[in-house]
Simulated assay, not measured.
Amino acid sequence: MRWTVPNILTVVRLIAAPLVGLVFLLLPRPAADWAALLLFLFASLTDYLDGWLARKWGQISRFGAMLDPIADKAMVVIALAVLLGLHGISDWTLIPVSAILFREVFVSGLREFLGETAGLLKVTKLAKWKTTVQMVAIALLFGWGLFDHYFIMQTFGMSPEIVTGILTGEIADDVGLIWKYYGLIAVSYGGLVLLWIAAGLTLVTGWDYFRKAMPYLRESP
């Protein structure tokens, strides 16, 4: 094993994965929310950076190839578990999260079973898009927690009474305040929409991998 910069970034991302959950035990909110969001953004950045640097500097290694998908899956699984805890279990969150987790376990099992032939399940462009949408969705959903609990009342100075006034139409003359509120709502719920899109892409790519593996799963005559 070589301790190259790409490999170090991958190891740091793997270490950051459990910290996304542990910060809620170690820090009070909203500090924990900020820490989880920043850790996840950092991990998402290194997910792109380590592969790019490995190719650019000719530092692709078996250790990095093995650890990179493990770090990615650890980050996503732990982040989704934390988000379920923060936002509660509902149809709008549990269904896409279950689809994403099912696919990750299923494809990992396929690769383990195929062993040396697992190379046929190479990452496709659609799978890369899935990962990108997934990362953006999770980041926005961490922001949703900050928005729900802290942005309205503290950062943006919106009391519960002001929010109620906007929703009931009693506050209709402060256009700036109204646009600010609904802009934040759009960003927050955008994360939920992207999570569903990511779940759909997850199932499509999972089926594609299964289809490619089928010839190797048939019993010999």
Rank of each mutant, 00 (worst) to 15 (best):
Arg2Gln: 14
Val5Trp: 15
Pro6His: 06
Pro6Ile: 00
Ile8Val: 07
Ile8Met: 05
Leu9Trp: 05
Val12Cys: 04
Arg13Ile: 01
Val20Gln: 01
Leu22His: 07
Phe24Tyr: 11
Leu25His: 15
Leu26Met: 15
Arg29His: 12
Pro30Lys: 04
Ala35Val: 03
Phe40Glu: 04
Leu41Trp: 08
Thr46Phe: 08
Thr46Pro: 09
Asp47Val: 01
Tyr48Gln: 02
Tyr48Glu: 07
Leu49Thr: 03
Leu49Gly: 08
Gly51Leu: 04
Leu53Ala: 13
Leu53Val: 14
Lys56Glu: 01
Gln59His: 12
Gln59Leu: 08
Arg62Met: 14
Met66Ser: 14
Asp72His: 03
Asp72Gly: 03
Lys73Asn: 05
Lys73Val: 00
Met75Ala: 15
Val77Cys: 09
Ile78Gly: 00
Ala79Tyr: 00
Leu80Lys: 00
Val82Ser: 11
Leu83Pro: 02
Leu84Phe: 12
Leu86Tyr: 02
Gly88Arg: 10
Trp92Gly: 05
Leu94Lys: 03
Val97His: 06
Ile100Val: 13
Phe102Ala: 05
Phe102Lys: 02
Phe106Asp: 11
Gly109Thr: 12
Leu110Asn: 11
Glu112Ala: 09
Glu116Ser: 15
Ala118Gln: 12
Lys122Val: 02
Lys122Ser: 08
Lys130Ile: 00
Lys130Thr: 03
Lys130Cys: 08
Val133Thr: 01
Gln134Ala: 08
Met135Gly: 05
Val136Leu: 08
Val136Tyr: 12
Ala137Cys: 13
Ala137Phe: 14
Phe142Glu: 01
Phe142Cys: 09
Gly143Ser: 10
Gly145Cys: 04
His149Cys: 04
Tyr150Trp: 12
Ile152Ala: 13
Ile152Val: 15
Gln154Ser: 14
Thr155Ser: 13
Phe156Pro: 00
Met158Trp: 05
Met158Val: 07
Thr164His: 13
Gly165Cys: 05
Gly169Asn: 04
Asp173Met: 03
Val175Gln: 06
Tyr181Cys: 04
Gly183Asp: 13
Val187Arg: 04
Ser188Glu: 03
Ser188Met: 04
Tyr189Ser: 10
Tyr189Met: 07
Gly190Glu: 03
Leu192Glu: 02
Leu195Glu: 11
Trp196Met: 05
Thr202Ser: 13
Asp208Lys: 09
Lys212Gln: 14
Ala213Lys: 00
Ala213Asn: 07
Pro215Ile: 07
